[in-house]
Design a protein around this nucleic acid. Sequence first.
DNA 1: GGCAAAGTGTGACTTTAATCACGGCGGGCG
DNA 2: CGCCCGCCGTGATTAAAGTCACACTTTGCC
Lengths: 229, 229
Amino acid sequence: MALTAQQVAFLKGTLGFFEEGLNKSQQEYLLGNVRPVFAPAGSIVHSGEAECLGVVLLQSGRLRAYMLSPDGREITLYFIGHSSLSMLAASCILKNVALPVHLSAEEDSHLFIIPPKVYNKLRAENKAVENYTSEVLGSTFAHTMQAIEHTVFLTLEQRLALLLLEQASFEESSTLHLTQEALARHLGTAREVVSRLLKTLSEEGILKIFRGGVTILNKNALAMLVPGL
Amino acid sequence: MALTAQQVAFLKGTLGFFEEGLNKSQQEYLLGNVRPVFAPAGSIVHSGEAECLGVVLLQSGRLRAYMLSPDGREITLYFIGHSSLSMLAASCILKNVALPVHLSAEEDSHLFIIPPKVYNKLRAENKAVENYTSEVLGSTFAHTMQAIEHTVFLTLEQRLALLLLEQASFEESSTLHLTQEALARHLGTAREVVSRLLKTLSEEGILKIFRGGVTILNKNALAMLVPGL
DNA sequence: GGCAAAGTGTGACTTTAATCACGGCGGGCG
DNA sequence: CGCCCGCCGTGATTAAAGTCACACTTTGCC
């Protein structure tokens, strides 16, 4: 259960408060109670109303936050990715709140989980942790609300455009390897619909479709589809 | 600018942490920096990306939280009402976050505003305030998320049913004085649509329509329309 | 009383998206 | 090679909402 030197280094570097904010015993307490987890691609990290998971720190891989409708439709809210971004699982740090948000691993991911009790203890003892919490919690909520604005106010075509742009910026490539089926799942719609939307976009010369993915030819035009860039 | 005895009593009673948590000087600081505000019916208390307002405490009247689309459509998220409920305006207590949520007064309302600086000072000094914050913040977010789930996953008819039930429980009466126009605004849709929905509901004997409002005849049937009660 | 404004009812139509029902293509594999 | 299966394209149809246009009623007020 002991952490490797590399893992420790990652935690120190990522948790802004670690070196300046925590005293020796707090540091040890944290390192002793953090739980390293490997989440294989496709696995579910946190399922909605489940027990409060705690703080999730992503070391490598990519996670996805989504809502789930009673009838099984998914709506992807946002991605958490690029090694070393961090966030709070379900805000259950705040008392008794379990948001109906789910978390799954898009790729094989290595992450750390700080159990609620451990985290809250540190938070109570230590102002630096408290500040860090507010910061991260705030940005998580901001993300969530913005994503929700999009799904509520935008058309499917616009949401598709956003999704493609978002993915492209992750991959740092304009060629995306995502099946239409997968795109449809992210948007909570049907594959045929995505197929048709992609067709019109490709007819406009904005992208090229190939089996298993698409290539964005004109990012600008894609961005233009979405009000507010 | 001095508060009346009644106002002080209200604050003491409503802010859970006031008497047990704060020392004399903190109490005075708070009382000296709280801002009593009268918001006439229809006025806007907090507008989206505006400056961080602070903590809002409702003494009497009723507030409404809603999202606003770029093209002016409103979607009512929830109501804050019945004297003495409290909440946090825009979570801007959490660093640099301005949620795109607006707040307006549905009725003439008396409220108190605790400016962010004042509140954060107390919060930093005092654990009781911190706990209270987490609590209220959490339930605010829970409310918000649930409302959003509804607007995303439910049909208009279901959302209308929810709105009517919610209003009825506020009024503590099954006769609601809300025009179809107003209902439409809450739901972010057009009046005609509401008119038709109400018509089918009235044909089913669930409610009775009259000029300027509706009477719910069968709350149960209305609730049945919404999955998960 | 007459008039304007606010509230409502309804028909017709369009748009957006979901659903159903196929048929084709291509790549991996027995 | 032939077969199956994952992926894609497309037409047809339906459903849910939004939009347009207009007529009718009530209410209140000059």
